[in-house]
Design a protein around this nucleic acid. Structure first.
Lengths: 348, 348
DNA sequence: TTGTATGCGTTATCAT
DNA sequence: ATGATAACGCATACAA
């Protein structure tokens, strides 16, 4: 009990107890191949006995690299953030890396400065960027200037495959709209997010792909949005309710927007899916908890974050850019449609 | 542009350029009082000019303390976690501290080991424990054994005020139930969480307080629950629907449970608040986004987390226990009822 | 296969 | 008020 204030054990204690030099202990810690098996085992036994754990600060200093993976997010969608954290932790458990989280205000020089300070101070080994800030050009430039490794979680495999993990957003969005088309809808509205975000762009493209393939005209009137939040969803829905004729279905490019749309629909006294069908995009499990449970496209953020962290820490620690012909990230993760109760054929 | 690979500037560079010793620079960095004003300003100018940032790893090593605040959570409620992160970041911005996050599986020796490894590896300066793991005795013992400072976010100011930040859960819960009583409800059910959690205990007490004060018998039949998640909410509601007579109102001790209750109610074809009134407990803003918007008790996790971090980093870095007569944390944060549309008088 | 000397970037000690 | 020197705990270079 209460051995709390015991001095921290160091590599020297291990060396002394094992009767070897500290360098030998260091070799054991770092799995050096050139070690007498007997010596290694003896040292390992001592380490286990006294419960020695290498001091990561000292390691970080000597190796000139830290053991922290940074997660940068814009603090909009709690489920996206915690989903990413789950994936990251899955990759980081049983490694010596920790997860350090930092929010980023979008836009403005002040936001840039805040991130710069964070990076200069904590000097994380690498960074994971969540959408939509993963598409922020200024932020990416900052990372490049500071020489900080980073992986972007984004919506199109095309851009910079070596520094991004992407899902097939366009295709998945097309599938979602085709699902509405198959139910018989023809007036399908789109509620989008920030125009600069890759998610907005790709999912809108998928929406357009689906309509075009059916020869359905794309009405600019039926494309609304702006930000990616609940209130925008409400306002967008209300704007759409005033269109004549009213759309019979709405495809919202995020769960937050879909939730806002659902809210506005209820408030208007309309029933889902009787009077309006809704399809969202985000976390399938979360959408299922709405009422009615929302048909949605599940964006596998946890799996993507896990892969991103793997790539970050599996990467050779030197600075040379990968020269493989088949860059990682070429194969996108698949976002998949999860059908629930928010889609029905349109009312006659 | 692209000054990416410039060698990191060190204290030596500053010292050389300023024509002083590195110790003097160190004094400037650490705001030592005994410094010639002129010298200080010259050094500061150089620092600003070349954009020098002290290396936190080296600082951590020399000072034998880290600049990371750990957040331990059980990964159940995304809004609780991100709410806490927002509060922590508010306290940590403009400090040299970073936020390192770690999930904790509840129960089991394996979970203990995982936390121990985390603490031994990252050696955070201090820890913030979120409910319900803030009430985990084994975890607290581990922190004590390892000598890790920690602040628990919890529900009763009584226990260990020096290591916890508490809200007035009992009182707030009583207020919530009184709100239902005032609307005319007499058969009010309670949906609780894990029995070991302080939140469950305190909020149940508040529920009982309110009923007793009105001379209403407490029916064990109307107290259900078990875990703190959506599915438990569903099952609890379904169990309560089978009671005869059915309760006219349900007080759920968390938003997750309330969401499950709401879901089950919809599924059963009952209308809220016409057939059933619901009050939740958690995040007021989130509850407002349900349909109907849920009357709930707002638990100020962000403010509490902010205060917790403040106390952690404002604390003297030595080990002596505070001896004040008025321990911090004695004044609890106030959870407040936010009325929305999920409460009506019971149907005649 | 193992050990010695040195460095990583900062702070603490004890001078002056 | 400022500086020289020695930690802090670990890793690397080079010897042995």
């Amino acid at each position: 009990m209460a051995m709390s204030r015991k001095a921290q054990l160091t590599i020297n204690d291990v060396a002394r107890l094992a009767g070897v030099s500290k360098k030998t202990v260091s070799r054991v810690i770092n799995d050096s191949p050139l070690l007498n098996r007997e010596t290694r085992e003896r040292v390992q036994r001592i380490i286990a006995e006294i419960g020695y754990v290498p001091n990561p600060q000292a390691r970080a200093l000597a190796l000139r690299r830290n053991f922290l993976i940074g997660l940068l997010h814009d603090d909009r969608d709690p489920h996206l953030i915690t989903g990413a954290q789950q994936g990251l932790f899955a990759a980081l458990r049983d490694t010596e890396f920790g997860l350090i989280v930092h929010p980023v205000d979008r836009g403005g020089a002040a936001a840039q400065d805040a991130v710069r300070h964070f990076l200069e101070r904590q000097r994380p080994f690498g960074l994971i960027l969540l959408p939509p800030i993963a598409d922020d050009a200024a932020l990416l430039r900052l990372c490049a200037d500071l020489g900080v490794r980073h992986i972007r979680l984004t919506s199109a495999p095309g851009d910079s495959p070596t520094t991004s993990i992407a899902a097939n957003d366009r295709e998945a969005a097309r599938g979602a709209v085709e699902h509405l088309l198959a139910a018989g809808h023809r007036r399908i509205a789109l509620v989008g997010g920030p125009p600069a975000a890759a998610a907005t762009r790709e999912r809108r493209r998928g929406y357009q792909d689906a309509l075009r393939a059916r020869g359905i005209a794309i009405h600019p009137d039926l494309i609304v949005g702006g930000e990616d939040d609940f209130d925008t969803g409400i306002r967008a829905a209300e704007a759409l309710f005033d269109r004549a004729p009213r759309p019979t279905a709405i495809f919202a490019i995020s769960d937050l927007l879909a939730a806002g749309v659902l809210h506005a629909t209820h408030r208007r006294g309309l029933a889902v899916p009787r009077d309006l069908s809704i399809v969202g995009f985000g976390d399938g499990a979360v959408a299922a908890r709405r009422w009615p449970p929302l048909t949605t496209v599940h964006w596998p953020v946890a799996a993507m974050a896990r892969a991103a962290a793997r790539r970050l820490i599996g990467e050779a620690p030197d600075e040379t850019a990968p020269t493989d012909d088949t860059p990682p990230g070429a194969a996108p993760f698949t976002a998949t449609l999860i059908t629930h109760l928010s889609v029905d054929p349109p009312a006659a």
